[in-house]
Write a protein that binds this DNA or RNA. Structure first.
Length: 486
RNA sequence: CGGGGCGUAGCGCAGCCUGGUAGCGCGUCUGCUUUGGGAGCAGAAGGCCCCCGGUUCGAGUCCGGGCGCCCCGACCA
């Protein structure tokens, strides 16, 4: 962590105290989180305090997701933080998967509890318990509920946003009449996640199914969106699970169908967390700091007035009018009228915080009835004050598109095909990103590929295998992308 | 969880080896001058040297134990 104070970053920029992204990626990430005031370390191991600027980003992410959840028929509800110990044991795979990570409350009110309470690592069990009470008839289905909450998992190694002991997320829980309906739900929500990641966060992803070894404990099967980070590692960014009848059987979620037969429901669950915010930082940030796509930027535009000479009051007045006009046009604009720092300082400061667009307004602009528009890390342009709303909205749109395309190009360039086990091993060792692997579907072959490469199978995509399994030489049946993962 | 590194002013660090008055840069505060890519001058404030214990006349410094953070690896929803 130690480095010379004030060393200029690699691009010759002025942002101090942020290590170069390429050379010291981990330190760079931590520095951006702290310097941009997204979060700070809490006095509890593995926990963070999310500061207002970071929390605003999370709120904007919530809005983008929540809107999509509502549009697909879901409603929000709240379930308890504490889960009775016995609930975890009902589903065998589930308890095995989560047991090591559960925090237990054993005392309360000054006395030992008769039954310890687990702090939820996820809510499938307690949701299952309640769904069993609520569901009687096929007419009660489907149940489409989403929860915005916090969960706790006792992690050994933590990093801000990417893996914390307590984190914020959403978990959707649905119950359905048929297997087909549950499957459609799980796939639909995966697509919602993909759409959100790509449109709102400008993060391109690989979407598909999880191999058996990587699926959620207790799921029939899991789907995932996987994003690629600049260090060549994959970030599991969202998951959607078809839980089959596993939890329905464990918790007795039964209903009378129209054929008068009692049946178990089919359930799903799906979630994304503030880990997405970590991915956002890594994918778009640079040596100058954070870079935010417009849809989740707390301030989409910062207005910097150049307050010099006699025009001072006129400039400030026009800048205020500008801020009002942009706000009226639905743009999140912030006027930086601080007098204690220079414009140059503000430029660097807001770039470090990732604001997509800067609008400069000085005496010269005022005389010409124009403003200077500068996309973060982009070239200066001017726009007439008369059409500033349109110019700003176009610039924001262009900036967001540019972020996505840059990230997409990076992803595309870092998907490498492997025809042999040796090529897989070499590509992973070189940290080149996702490696496209043909696989026969056998668990033994998967284990062999994992063992040889040190990477894990991140996602099985919907593509036909175009050759033999890399492990055994039998005809390939699936295409799997391997990568080292967060 | 294993190996390594680091905890000293808000931030970045020196001081520790060889025990004896707590230092530097940036930032902060006050005043004046400034303001189109991190402004200048003058003055000032700011410290449980991570915590607990030990050695010593005396510990930021030496010894033991904890806690936290970072890096590499292992493990993992």
């Amino acid at each position: 962590m130690s480095r010379p104070a004030g060393r200029p970053s690699a691009d010759g920029g002025f942002v101090k105290e942020i290590p170069p992204k390429d050379a010291e990626f981990s330190d760079w990430y931590t520095a951006v989180v702290l310097k941009a005031e997204l979060a700070d370390y809490a006095p509890v191991r593995g926990c963070i305090v999310v500061r207002p600027y970071g929390y605003t980003i999370w709120e904007l992410m919530q809005q983008g997701l929540d809107r999509r959840f509502k549009a697909t028929g879901h409603t929000n509800a709240y379930f308890p933080l504490f889960i009775p110990q016995g609930f975890f044991a009902r589903e065998a795979e589930h308890v095995e998967g989560f047991a090591p990570e559960i925090a237990w409350v054993t005392r309360g009110g000054g006395a030992e509890l008769t039954e310890p309470l687990g702090v939820r690592p996820t809510s499938e069990t307690i949701v299952g318990h309640m769904y069993a009470r609520w569901i009687r008839s096929y007419r009660d289905l489907p149940v489409l509920i989403n929860l915005w909450n916090n969960v706790v998992r006792w992690e050994k190694a933590t990093r801000p946003f990417l893996r914390t002991m307590e984190f914020l997320w959403q978990e959707g829980h649905t119950a359905h009449r048929t297997e087909e309906e549950a499957e459609a739900e799980a796939r639909q929500m995966l697509d919602v996640y993909r759409d959100f990641a790509e449109r709102d966060l400008a993060i391109p992803v690989l979407a598909g199914r999880k191999p058996e070894s990587e699926k959620f404990p207790g799921a029939a099967h899991s789907y995932t969106i996987e994003a690629l980070m600049p260090d060549g590692q994959a970030l599991q960014s969202g998951t959607s699970h078809n839980l089959g009848q596993n939890f329905a059987r464990a918790f007795g979620i039964k209903f009378l169908d129209s054929d008068n037969a009692e049946k178990y429901a089919y359930t799903t669950s799906w979630g994304v967390s503030w880990r997405l915010l970590g991915g956002l930082i890594m994918v778009h940030g640079d040596d100058r700091g954070l870079a935010l796509p417009p849809r989740v930027a707390p301030f989409q535009v910062v207005i910097v007035p150049i307050l010099s000479g006699k025009e001072r009051d006129a400039v400030l007045e026009e800048a205020r009018a500008l801020a009002r006009r942009l706000a009226a046009a639905g743009v999140r604009a912030r006027l930086d009228d601080r007098t204690e720092v220079t414009p140059g300082y503000k430029f660097n400061d807001w770039e470090m915080r990732g604001v997509p667009l800067r609008v400069e307004l000085g005496p010269r602009d005022l005389a010409r009835r124009q403003a200077v528009l500068v996309p973060r890390a982009g070239a200066k342009d001017t726009a007439a004050l008369e059409r500033i709303e349109a110019a700003v909205s176009e610039a924001l749109e262009a900036y967001g598109t540019q972020l996505f395309h840059r990230a997409k190009r990076y992803l595309d360039e870092h998907i490498v095909p492997a025809s042999t086990m040796a090529e897989l091993v070499e590509a992973i060792a070189g940290r080149r990103g996702f490696v496209r692997v043909r696989w026969c579907g056998a668990a033994t072959c998967e284990a062999a590929l994992r063992q040889a490469s040190g990477a894990s199978p991140r996602v099985i995509v919907d593509e036909a295998a175009d050759g033999a399994c890399l492990a055994c030489g039998a005809p390939g049946t699936q295409v799997v992308y391997y990568a080292r993962a967060y």
